[in-house]
Amino acid sequence: MVEPIRVMEGKAAPLKVNDVDTDQIIPAQFLKLLSRKGLGKYAFYRWRYNEDGTPKPGFILDDPRFKDAEILIAGKNFGIGSSRENAVWALLDLGIRCVIAPSFGDIFYNNAAKNGLLCIRLPEDLVERLQDRAMEGDLILRIDLEKQEISGKDIEAIRFDIEPHVKERLLKGLDDITMALLYEEEIKRYEERMPSYIIPKPSRFLHE
């Protein structure tokens, strides 16, 4: 279900805001939706719409130059806060396939890897330079995950680090469950020696 990523190329958009929490990426009111598709129109909702639902101009991704952006260059601590995976789905549905930032919220980072959204950490000054460059509206970046390298016109190739397991997962578009079930033996062995007190047994007087 997850698309493998090897090399991607796309328009980059700057989002010069630090500490963008998942609540800003997708407000809680849209968590009630029962599916992961179609969340893009609610992404960054409160930056893009007024209370009455009319569009609020000025949000960078609504700028015609960035409408088709696939790479978001964000500020530090991107995706902190609530664990909602919907934040990743919303970005993907918006067409974002890669986020570059100085740092990420942990849960967001993990959720991204599982859903085929590439998150790249780069030093803050480099991110700021890329943001400034992207602001011009015509920055196309080529990201080679295999080589761990970002390149673009007038941009010296940038190496980035990524945890090997995150890389492998993104490269292969691996499904976690299948990977875990390769270890059925180990799971069974644990379950056999698991102390019985860990398995909850309701008291016969549950009402008290």
Binding site: R36, S83, R84, E85, N86, V88, I107, N110, N111, K114, N115, D176, I177, A180, L181, Y183, I187, E191
Partner: peptide, 14 residues
């Protein structure tokens, strides 16, 4: 954990 992980724990208890 996130929702994919919820599914993962449902299915594998890991």
């Amino acid at each position: 954990i996130g929702t994919s992980e919820v599914a993962h724990v449902f299915a594998t208890q890991t």
